[in-house]
Simulated assay, not measured.
Amino acid sequence: MPAANPDRRLNLAQQLVHDLSQQILAGELPAGTKLPTEDAFSKARGVSRTVVREAMSRLQAEGLVETRRGIGTFVVDAIPAGDFQATSPGKGSAYNAVAIIELRLCLEVEAAAIAAQRAGAEQVQAMRTALDQAHDAQQAPCTRTDFEFHLQIAQCTGNSFFIDSMTHLGNTLVAAGEQAVPALGDAMQMREREQVYSAIARKDADAARAAMRLHLTNCLGRARAVAEAGNS
């Protein structure tokens, strides 16, 4: 039997890391929770034990789980997304939003360009699905649905550092960073995300880079406006 495609195995491991990290950061798997065995994960997810092992190693490297020899793998304490604001004493969420969107500009502009060069048909479709879900949530705050769209872009890069950064930091980045920005139904933001998607789908790296920069720069401008209004 031929060996499993390493790219497919990596993608499956990354998806498992994403799913579990979201459950941990959302508090659905609190600290102290014992995770299922490799064999149980393998059967439940329909993946090889090698995939599960790679995912557990990644989660352990990110400080979300620990393996106790002979006992099992357990969730460890993680900083909830809401606690991020407490790291900036004297500054409200609007100021945190400005700082975080500045960070996202450094990370996601180039990720969009790389995604345009590397995205496969299935990845583009997954990004389209995430984008449609974001647009459907017109009355919801910009949190998880918008994060899923940006995470799919990171997945398209095929670069584990981009993927791990968005997976590990995503809840905090978006939850804090978008609190000062209007809801997902904002027509301008919807157009901006469509431009990012369109550029990646047609494999135009320069256009993807420019569209993501425009989107996040506009988010930054809106966040700054809210921060200044709150300070007046």
Score class of each variant (00 low, 15 high):
residue 1 M to G: 12
residue 3 A to L: 10
residue 7 D to S: 11
residue 9 R to S: 13
residue 10 L to Q: 14
residue 13 A to M: 05
residue 14 Q to M: 14
residue 14 Q to A: 13
residue 14 Q to V: 03
residue 14 Q to K: 06
residue 15 Q to W: 06
residue 16 L to M: 12
residue 17 V to D: 05
residue 18 H to W: 13
residue 22 Q to H: 09
residue 23 Q to V: 01
residue 25 L to I: 07
residue 25 L to N: 11
residue 26 A to L: 13
residue 28 E to I: 02
residue 28 E to K: 15
residue 31 A to I: 01
residue 36 P to E: 03
residue 37 T to F: 00
residue 40 A to N: 01
residue 40 A to S: 08
residue 41 F to V: 03
residue 41 F to L: 05
residue 41 F to G: 03
residue 42 S to W: 00
residue 44 A to R: 12
residue 46 G to A: 08
residue 53 R to A: 13
residue 56 M to Q: 05
residue 56 M to G: 02
residue 59 L to P: 09
residue 60 Q to K: 13
residue 60 Q to L: 03
residue 62 E to G: 15
residue 62 E to M: 15
residue 63 G to M: 06
residue 64 L to A: 11
residue 68 R to S: 06
residue 68 R to F: 15
residue 68 R to L: 15
residue 70 G to A: 11
residue 70 G to V: 05
residue 70 G to S: 12
residue 72 G to D: 02
residue 79 I to V: 13
residue 80 P to M: 07
residue 80 P to K: 08
residue 81 A to Q: 07
residue 87 T to F: 14
residue 89 P to W: 05
residue 90 G to F: 10
residue 90 G to N: 08
residue 92 G to M: 05
residue 92 G to F: 02
residue 93 S to L: 08
residue 93 S to Q: 08
residue 95 Y to R: 12
residue 96 N to P: 01
residue 97 A to K: 04
residue 97 A to D: 05
residue 98 V to R: 05
residue 100 I to H: 02
residue 101 I to Y: 05
residue 101 I to A: 06
residue 101 I to T: 12
residue 102 E to T: 07
residue 104 R to H: 00
residue 104 R to G: 04
residue 106 C to P: 00
residue 108 E to L: 14
residue 109 V to H: 02
residue 109 V to N: 07
residue 110 E to A: 13
residue 111 A to G: 09
residue 113 A to D: 02
residue 115 A to I: 11
residue 115 A to L: 09
residue 116 A to P: 09
residue 119 A to H: 03
residue 119 A to F: 04
residue 123 Q to L: 10
residue 124 V to C: 09
residue 125 Q to Y: 01
residue 125 Q to M: 10
residue 125 Q to N: 10
residue 125 Q to D: 15
residue 126 A to N: 08
residue 127 M to K: 04
residue 128 R to V: 02
residue 129 T to R: 07
residue 129 T to F: 07
residue 130 A to L: 03
residue 131 L to H: 01
residue 133 Q to V: 03
residue 136 D to Y: 07
residue 137 A to V: 02
residue 141 P to W: 03
residue 141 P to L: 04
residue 142 C to I: 03
residue 144 R to E: 14
residue 146 D to S: 14
residue 146 D to L: 11
residue 147 F to T: 01
residue 149 F to I: 07
residue 149 F to H: 01
residue 150 H to M: 13
residue 151 L to P: 05
residue 153 I to W: 01
residue 154 A to T: 12
residue 155 Q to W: 11
residue 156 C to H: 00
residue 156 C to Y: 04
residue 157 T to E: 02
residue 158 G to V: 06
residue 160 S to M: 06
residue 160 S to T: 15
residue 163 I to D: 06
residue 165 S to D: 08
residue 165 S to T: 15
residue 168 H to K: 10
residue 170 G to Q: 04
residue 170 G to P: 09
residue 171 N to M: 09
residue 172 T to R: 05
residue 172 T to N: 04
residue 174 V to F: 15
residue 175 A to L: 01
residue 179 Q to T: 14
residue 180 A to E: 02
residue 188 M to D: 10
residue 189 Q to A: 11
residue 189 Q to L: 15
residue 190 M to G: 13
residue 191 R to A: 11
residue 192 E to V: 00
residue 192 E to D: 15
residue 195 Q to R: 14
residue 198 S to N: 14
residue 199 A to E: 03
residue 200 I to E: 08
residue 201 A to Y: 08
residue 207 A to T: 04
residue 208 A to Q: 03
residue 212 M to K: 12
residue 215 H to P: 02
residue 216 L to H: 01
residue 216 L to C: 02
residue 220 L to I: 08
residue 222 R to D: 00
residue 225 A to L: 13
residue 225 A to I: 03
residue 225 A to F: 12
residue 227 A to Y: 07
residue 229 A to W: 11
residue 232 S to Q: 10
